[in-house]
């Protein structure tokens, strides 16, 4: 397992969410439809590290500080 975080995701690739930060954020992400083990698509990576991922038809923007805490495989 490498320790890659979501903010380093490459635009236009599929990635697996391996670990979410625990606590409230995790609950929020699960409710939005993102849980550990999910495969999501990286739609865009903005300069500075704001990430937009897509799961099914849902597009979700994740700020750099949060993306940094999400491990991907």
């Amino acid at each position: 397992m490498n320790k890659k975080t979501l903010d380093k995701a490459k635009k236009g690739t599929y990635l697996t969410i391996s670990t979410l930060p625990s606590g409230l954020v995790k609950i929020q992400l699960i409710r939005l439809g993102i849980s550990e083990g999910d495969i999501v698509f990286c739609l865009e990576r903005l300069p500075g590290g704001t990430i937009i991922i897509q799961k099914n038809r849902q597009e979700i923007a994740i700020g750099y500080d949060l993306a940094k805490q999400i491990l991907i495989g």
Binding site: L46, P47, G48, G49, T50, A61, G63, Y64
Partner: peptide, 19 residues
């Protein structure tokens, strides 16, 4: 508007806000 929020997110971070 939410897309504008996303685009400006990083710049807003520097003034203590998010997008």
């Amino acid at each position: 508007l939410p897309r504008l929020a996303t685009m400006l997110d990083r710049s807003m971070n520097s003034i203590g806000l998010n997008g």
